[in-house]
Simulated assay, not measured.
Amino acid sequence: MIEIDLDTVVTALRGAGCVFAEEEAALLTGAASSPAELELLVAQRISGIPLEHLLGWAEFRGLRVAVGPGVFVPRQRTGFLVEQAVRLGRSGSGGTRVVVDLCCGCGALGLAAATELARNGIRVHLTASDIEPAAVACARRNLAPLSAHVYQGDLFDPLPAALAGHVDILIANTPYVPTPMIARMPPEARDHEPRYALDGGPDGLDIVRRVATEAAAWLAPGGSVLVESSEEQADSAMEIFARHGLTAFVRESEALYATAVIGMRRRDL
């Protein structure tokens, strides 16, 4: 640990608007190998670079996942989507689940879901995909211990055809910020995360519509697709799933300020 006046770092970060200045100061100090490196890290953080990009990792549901420049940082509220996926994965018979992490980013959701299902004695065959090369490289690093396959491409396009009709859990952390609202996002997200991972189109549901169009063809009978949305978008997202033959419902977490919209393929289809 380098010698540094931690109070000075905290003051600088707090002055830049960092809400958790004390925690961030401790993390940056621990990551720096010299006072000069710490000074650079603090300056970069003050400029708006996400803390996780500077550290090279993010904590998500108790796991440390690698992230880097140009890669979407998983939000803590999105852990609720994982909770719902695990709940669905625990139900039903059989000891193996086919899980797809679509729009996977760094692969945090698939990693967390597979890890938690494994703790319940359920084996997971995990596949992930993302359109961004930097995200795919990051996901391959994070998911390598699970022997997961990570593909680069647009939504379902790169997935192996053999998965069609066999996916038990499809987690799709689609972008859902309406285009007009992008300008109001915090600079660390707006300026340092890929636009495709944030912008959901005029009403925020463009990618949800695209996922819903193909989801039923990839899901196994009784399989489910899960997306995150805002509370205001939930009813519209449910209607989108229903129009494509899925039984749709919403789950909410007040504690995490999170909304999950779930579409389930009927078992008799």
Rank of each mutant, 00 (worst) to 15 (best):
residue 2 I to T: 11
residue 7 D to R: 15
residue 8 T to F: 06
residue 12 A to F: 02
residue 13 L to A: 11
residue 16 A to S: 14
residue 21 A to C: 10
residue 24 E to V: 12
residue 27 L to W: 12
residue 31 A to Q: 12
residue 31 A to S: 14
residue 33 S to N: 11
residue 33 S to Y: 00
residue 35 P to N: 13
residue 41 L to P: 04
residue 43 A to K: 14
residue 54 L to D: 11
residue 61 R to G: 00
residue 65 V to T: 02
residue 68 G to M: 05
residue 69 P to W: 01
residue 77 R to P: 00
residue 77 R to E: 15
residue 79 G to R: 02
residue 80 F to A: 04
residue 86 V to P: 11
residue 89 G to P: 12
residue 90 R to E: 14
residue 95 G to M: 08
residue 103 C to L: 07
residue 116 E to P: 06
residue 125 H to F: 03
residue 130 D to F: 02
residue 130 D to I: 02
residue 130 D to Q: 04
residue 146 L to I: 08
residue 146 L to A: 10
residue 151 Y to M: 11
residue 153 G to D: 09
residue 154 D to A: 13
residue 154 D to T: 10
residue 156 F to G: 02
residue 163 L to N: 10
residue 171 I to D: 01
residue 172 A to S: 13
residue 172 A to W: 09
residue 174 T to K: 04
residue 179 T to A: 13
residue 180 P to L: 07
residue 180 P to N: 11
residue 183 A to L: 04
residue 185 M to E: 06
residue 192 H to I: 02
residue 192 H to Q: 01
residue 195 R to E: 04
residue 196 Y to W: 07
residue 200 G to W: 08
residue 202 P to F: 02
residue 205 L to C: 10
residue 209 R to L: 06
residue 210 R to G: 03
residue 214 E to L: 14
residue 215 A to H: 09
residue 217 A to P: 00
residue 220 A to I: 12
residue 221 P to Q: 09
residue 228 E to Q: 13
residue 230 S to I: 06
residue 230 S to H: 10
residue 231 E to G: 03
residue 231 E to P: 00
residue 232 E to G: 06
residue 235 D to F: 01
residue 237 A to E: 07
residue 238 M to E: 15
residue 241 F to V: 06
residue 248 A to G: 05
residue 252 E to G: 00
residue 261 V to Y: 08
residue 264 M to D: 00
residue 264 M to W: 00
residue 269 L to Y: 07
